[in-house]
């Protein structure tokens, strides 16, 4: 099963904020196979969440505009489906986990009720069977089934995130979009949640896009990694390739800024400068203003993706094609 399960082609998304147009996603293409975990790494505002929300088509109607692109899921172009058809997909074939567990659950509904809602919507079963399935899911994420009728405020942060995961996985989705699922949790809980995600992924053979800014998380869970900068994929490849041979100056900067416990360094090495203003992106390579190796050619025109090895591509003029 080597066909692409998810194939995003040239996705462009803009937001309108007052008079300014925010170019959130500028021509993103990526592919995902069944059962594969792709890590989507980038700074805040790079466009990661937008990509995920575009797949589900839950972008805010008023301000967002999916200008162009195709999102093929299992042979279907998601962007050409009707809303009714999308309802079938959401929560069922493709699920999403959001970043902040504290606010991701409806405070006035029981946790069991919220999970059961998803089950009832997609599996077309009656309430009792939905309840049964819900209890199963709760047990699966390590929450006693007796807590079905409790409310979100009665759970701690980590447990809330588990509920969210249970809700997302209740209908056995084939693709899970996890938007920084552990950023709001402390490290020990983080480890638990990641372990659980891994386990469930094995069990259900789910494909997953794991959005994060934490390279450590990527290292632990992902198979492939895509680096996003200013709404573009600047580097994509297997975890080993990216970690051992980071090609793009931005990626190199990212790894370089990780503090090395062994060197006894006193200062951090951040990447100089700030990410560009998304309403006013520079011509050419968006990283050029901060890049120590930038040339005039870099700033002149759009940079194409260069294939370095079989599973490693980079959007940089300085690379040599391999």
């Amino acid at each position: 099963m080597n066909e692409e399960f998810l194939d995003i082609q040239d996705l462009v998304v803009t937001y309108t904020s007052g008079k300014a147009i925010v170019h959130a996603v500028n021509g993103v293409s990526l592919q995902l196979r069944r059962g594969e975990i792709l890590g989507l790494v980038g700074e805040t505002g790079a466009g990661k969440t937008t990509i995920a929300k575009s797949i589900l088509r839950i972008l805010p109607d008023r301000s967002a505009r999916l200008a162009q692109g195709k999102i093929m899921l299992d042979g279907q172009d998601l962007l050409s489906l009707t809303e009714k058809e999308m309802l079938e997909i959401r929560g069922n074939k493709v699920s999403m986990i959001f970043q902040d567990p504290m606010t991701a659950l409806n405070p006035v509904m029981t946790v069991g009720g919220q999970i059961a809602e998803a089950v009832q919507l997609h599996e077309h079963v009656d309430l009792n069977q939905a309840k049964k399935k819900t209890c199963e899911m709760l047990e699966m994420v390590g929450i006693p089934a007796e807590r079905f009728n409790e409310y979100p405020h009665q759970f701690s942060g980590g447990m809330k995130q588990r509920v969210v995961i249970a809700m997302a996985l209740a209908c056995n989705p084939e693709l899970l979009l996890a938007d920084e699922p552990t950023s709001a949790l402390d490290v020990t809980i983080q480890a638990q949640v990641l372990e659980m995600i891994n386990e469930l992924k094995q069990r259900f053979n789910m494909a997953m896009i794991l959005i994060t800014h934490d390279l450590g998380v990527v290292a632990e869970t992902c198979q492939r990694v895509a680096i996003i900068y200013a709404g573009q994929i600047v580097e994509i490849g297997t975890k080993e390739e990216i970690f051992r041979h980071p090609a793009h100056p931005y990626t190199q900067g990212l790894f370089g800024s990780l503090p090395n416990m062994n060197s006894g360094a006193k200062r951090l090495h951040p990447i100089v400068g700030m990410p560009p203003d998304p309403t006013n992106l520079p011509k050419g390579c968006p990283f050029a203003p901060r890049c120590p190796h930038a040339t005039d050619q870099c700033r002149a025109a759009e940079i194409p993706m260069k294939t370095l090895t079989e599973d490693h591509s980079c959007r940089c003029l300085l690379q040599t094609e391999g």
């Binding site: 589900l56 959401r90 999403m96 959001f98 970043q99 409806n106 919507l121």
Partner: peptide
Amino acid sequence: RSDYISTARAKGVPERSVIYKHMLPN
């Protein structure tokens, strides 16, 4: 604007239900 509304939408809850069942009580 709340996150749980996004969650509900992401679950595939039809917009009508999102408004009346999730948003209105809150």
